[in-house]
Amino acid sequence: MAAWGALDNDIVSIINHYRNRADCENNFDEIKNQWGWGGYVTKDMARCRMLARMVALVYNWWTLYVRLSNPDSHKESITSRPLLMSSIGKLTHSGNQKKIKLTSQHRWMYKIAKLQSELCDFFDSIKSIAPQLNPINAWCRILTKAVSKFLKKGQVITMQPLIRSG
């Protein structure tokens, strides 16, 4: 009987490890299939590396943007791009200000508008104190919001500069 109890614990552990592995593989699958990182047909390694880095950079920026829009859940690009890029924008100039007006036909346009409004408010709050922040502190605030789901309540990301001894 004791052996069965250990086996039950191992099964739960195996299930958790398998789920974690699948979550990790989903990111690579998304980069390959949704972002075009499936390979390049050229023998020029410099171009291949440059394109791979560009895809990775755009993927990272998009993932950060989507996570900032909705920190509570990960959205894959196959769902987040139509959701957040289905709007038509118009830039207007008035006095010394520029405003972008977005019009959406998406069925979740009110949810999208709420997410975008909250994101604009967040960036406005950073912009209002930006002169007091150095770039590292500004990034820490942005990353704290982006990964707030994984942090304990009140926890903040901080980065210490690397000091090399001579």
Results as ranks from 00 to 15, higher is better:
K43T: 14
E76R: 02
V58F: 08
D121H: 07
L102M: 08
W37Q: 02
Q34F: 03
S86F: 01
K101H: 12
D121W: 04
A52Y: 03
I14F: 13
D8G: 11
I129E: 10
W61L: 12
S69G: 08
R53E: 12
R81N: 01
L51A: 03
L51M: 09
W37C: 03
Y18M: 11
K90Y: 11
S73N: 08
S73P: 02
S69D: 03
L68K: 02
K99N: 12
C24S: 13
K75T: 08
S125P: 03
V58M: 08
F28I: 07
G89C: 09
Q34H: 07
V55R: 02
D72M: 05
D44S: 03
A22E: 14
I15V: 12
H74P: 03
Y18L: 12
S94E: 15
M50Q: 09
T42D: 08
D121S: 12
T63P: 00
G39H: 01
K101A: 12
D29C: 09
K98M: 13
S87H: 10
N60L: 06
N33C: 02
A52Q: 07
W108Y: 15
N9H: 13
F28E: 05
S13H: 14
H17L: 10
S80M: 00
S104V: 01
T92P: 04
Y110G: 09
L119N: 04
E118L: 08
K75Y: 13
F123Q: 00
